[in-house]
Structure formats: structure tokens, C-alpha cells
Amino acid sequence: MKYWPSVSRYTGVLSCMLCILFCWLLSGCSGREPHTGTRVVIQTRFGDIEAELYPEKAPATVAAFLRNVDSGYYRNTSFYRILRDDNQVTGALHSYLVQGGLWETKPALEQRLPLIPHEPTNKTGLHHVAGALSMARNTPGTASSEFFICLKDQPGFDYGGENNPDGQGYAVFGKIISGMKTVQEIYRQPEYEQQLTPAITILDIKRLD
């Protein structure tokens, strides 16, 4: 008992401390996980696609993507490419994705954008699962604005996977959390040699927080 102060002497202090403790506990019992990412919405005529980005895991990629968003570069661009079973070589390793960005509508701007240091999945801990948002590229470190959404789990896009000859994979930087039905509707649109005909307009991409 010698380590406890007298209740009669410290009643006000204890009451204050208990009140603070109660409020702290109450704030942590909302039933929701703390939000640590950054959300964006991709607006199309088929509906909105909401994604959460992971700046703590892929900081360079997220920063570059948000730079393009905040600059308005994705306004009136497009989803222009799809990969599915019926437009790939039989017997080859297939991919399942919808790709978009500046390439089809603003190619000159796309060529001027800074390149993004490659953030492979073995460094970020992220993976190409269904709904993953990832950067398209040629060689590692050449991504700038073009991105794709996975329609299925595709471990071949991860570091060491078979879908890219250099074995470095692609850089996942987010995931679709709402609007996959919209992505699937775009995925079902007419195409010719993997190019959507016509391309599906991205009205804009905006931050939600």
C-alpha cells in the first residue's frame, strides 16, 4: 500500500486521469481499423473506381502517381488496353488486366514526365492479387504514368515471376477497394489486338483524402 497515494489527497488528480483514460479507450473502440493509406477515385462513364494507395510501402510510386493526379494529368485520359484469354496466344502464359493512363490521349506529356525508381514487390511486401493497382513499364525504372488493375491473382507479375523477362516484376502501389464491377464492365468491352475499341474515357482521378 505504501506506493499508492492517499485517495483523499489526490481525488481531483485521479478523477482527471480516469476521465482522460476513458476518452482514450472510447476513441479506440470504434470498430474500424485506423486508416493509413491515401484514397483516390477513378471516374468513368461506367461508374467510379475507388482505390487505396500505400505510401508507406511504395513511397516513390505513390508520390509520382499523386503528382499526376494533383496536376490534373489524368483528366480526360483513358483505359485503352485489356488482356484476357481471348486476345492472347494459346499456350502462352496469360495475363488479366485493364491498363490506362496518358499514353493514348496525351503521349507528348507522358514522354516528358519524370521516371519512377522501381519498387519491386520483394521490397514493398505488396503483391499482384485481384484488384491490385500497379505501374506499367518497359525496363525497370521507366514507369511514369501508365497503370493497370489486376482482374485475377497474378504472382507472375511479382518479383521473380515469369510474366516479365527481367524478373523484377511490376510495382504494386495500391488496391481497388470499391468499384470492381466497373472494372469488370470495362474488361468486357470490345477490343482489337488488345486495344479497347473505343478506349474508355477516364473522366478524372481525384484524391478522396
Results as ranks from 00 to 15, higher is better:
residue 36 T to W: 02
residue 45 R to Y: 15
residue 112 R to V: 14
residue 166 D to Y: 00
residue 176 I to T: 08
residue 86 D to G: 08
residue 199 A to F: 02
residue 20 I to V: 05
residue 154 Q to D: 09
residue 101 G to I: 10
residue 182 T to M: 01
residue 25 L to P: 03
residue 112 R to D: 10
residue 120 P to E: 01
residue 30 S to E: 15
residue 204 D to T: 07
residue 146 E to W: 13
residue 8 S to K: 14
residue 103 W to E: 09
residue 129 V to S: 08
residue 45 R to W: 13
residue 187 Y to C: 08
residue 122 N to L: 13
residue 65 F to E: 07
residue 33 E to D: 12
residue 46 F to D: 11
residue 107 P to E: 15
residue 42 I to K: 01
residue 156 G to W: 11
residue 52 E to T: 11
residue 165 P to C: 03
residue 182 T to W: 02
residue 34 P to Q: 11
residue 100 G to C: 12
residue 187 Y to S: 09
residue 74 Y to K: 04
residue 135 M to W: 09
residue 36 T to S: 03
residue 125 G to V: 13
residue 16 C to N: 10
residue 150 C to F: 10
residue 111 Q to S: 12
residue 125 G to E: 11
residue 107 P to R: 11
residue 81 R to L: 12
residue 191 E to G: 00
residue 43 Q to M: 11
residue 110 E to H: 06
residue 29 C to K: 06
residue 91 G to E: 14
residue 173 F to N: 09
residue 169 G to L: 04
residue 178 S to N: 09
residue 198 P to D: 01
residue 33 E to Q: 15
residue 71 S to H: 13
residue 9 R to L: 07
residue 135 M to E: 09
residue 55 P to Q: 03
residue 34 P to H: 08
residue 24 W to D: 09
residue 120 P to A: 03
residue 33 E to K: 12
residue 121 T to F: 04
residue 2 K to P: 04
residue 108 A to L: 09
residue 61 T to C: 07
residue 141 G to W: 04
residue 13 V to A: 04
residue 197 T to Q: 10
residue 50 E to D: 05
